[in-house]
């Protein structure tokens, strides 16, 4: 008892002293703001601004990794190649298309799925903790590990788990599809695995928001004779609107920086790389497998510009509706 009263008492004078000190030293101090911001600003400058400026600079040079040849200034050649060279522009375009396809499918599906799962998991039922744990589990395992399992699932031939299941239900009519090897299903397979892997993360965020919607609103709505569906549309969704927007935004970010799923699933099988290449995998491939750093830098700059445009459009759209 004595101990607790002591600890309870102590903080008060300490904070009071700190407040007195700060008001004595920093009020009206011209450099206080910049001083406090400086750790973050220096970090941003070193890890964000400087590398980006360097990437822009590198994109004007011909730089080969591990080469004794000095970098050679070539102006806009890397950019003109990226748009006029038939091979390069086709590959870059395909990678961009794969990224956009991925985002267009994954963002809505994953957000809705996360909402659905969160609503289900939010029910007060016995053993819900177990369900929550299971749904959250894919996120806990490292992706490199789950990718090994998914390669077995998607494996061509009758040993593939997915093929085995389809074969069982169709009486053997559907089997032996090469999910990752066939260009028509390769990207789809990666989308499914990706959603499975990361939907639980979004679900947890939505779940937290759901639990913060005041119960009085539901009571009021039920007094107004709103049924469950009407409550969901008119109380739940508006109540977690900002969270849903946030979830959609981070899913968009994840979609555009898509790398690991593609790298792990398609590089290790015998897969036509073009069918699943994303801009990120292409940049890494160009810069570090082909050692062509200048070209890779040009790709990052173009990609950055594209993303900036998307960001501006999204921001405008959110603002129009009285956004966050």
């Amino acid at each position: 008892m004595i101990m607790t009263t002591q600890t309870q008492k102590k903080p008060a004078p300490a904070t009071a002293a700190a407040r007195r000190q700060s008001s004595a030293n920093l009020t009206g101090h011209r450099f206080a703001g910049p001083l406090f911001a400086s750790p973050a600003l220096i970090g941003l400058a070193i890890f964000l601004v400087a590398p980006f400026v360097l990437a822009v600079v590198l994109s004007f040079y011909r730089v080969q990794l591990n080469s004794p040849r000095p970098a050679r200034f070539i102006g806009f050649e890397q950019y003109t190649r990226l748009f006029t060279d038939p091979d390069l522009s086709a590959a870059f375009g395909q990678a961009l298309l794969n990224n956009f396809t991925f985002a267009l499918i994954v963002v809505p599906v994953q957000t809705v799925l996360a909402l659905g799962l969160a609503v289900l998991v939010n029910r007060k039922l016995r053993g819900m903790v177990v369900f929550r744990t299971f749904i959250f589990m894919p996120l806990v395992f490292p992706l490199a590990l789950t990718a090994v399992i998914w390669r077995l699932i998607y494996s061509r031939g009758d040993e593939g788990l997915l093929n085995a299941i389809f074969g069982l239900f169709s009486g053997g009519a559907l089997s032996s599809h090469d999910w990752l090897g066939s260009p028509s299903t390769a990207l789809g397979s990666i989308i499914v695995m990706s959603i499975w892997q990361s939907v639980s993360f979004q679900m947890i965020i939505v779940l937290a928001a759901l639990q913060s919607v005041p119960t009085e609103l539901y009571e009021a709505a039920s007094l107004d004779r709103a049924n469950k569906w009407q409550q969901f549309i008119n109380v739940t969704v508006p109540g977690i609107r900002n969270t849903l927007i946030f979830v959609a935004l981070i899913t968009t970010i994840f979609s555009f920086r898509l790398f690991d799923q593609v790298y792990l699933l398609s590089r290790s099988g015998s897969v036509d790389r073009g069918s699943t290449e994303t801009v990120m995998t292409q940049i890494i491939n160009t810069g570090f497998d082909n050692n062509n750093v200048g070209q890779a830098a040009a790709m990052t700059v173009i990609f950055m510009l594209i993303i900036t445009v998307i960001a501006i459009i999204q921001r405008a759209a959110v603002r129009q509706r009285g956004g966050v």
Binding site: L44, F47, L48, V49, A50, P51, F52, L54, A55, L58, V63, L249, I250, T252, I253, F256, R257, M280, I283, I284, G287, V293, A296, A297, T300, V301, F303, M304, I307, T308, A311, Q314
Partner: peptide
Amino acid sequence: PKSRRRAGIFAAVAAVSA
């Protein structure tokens, strides 16, 4: 924060390039 985060990804690549 979104555009910053995105920029971070490219910056990381650029840092390695540098």
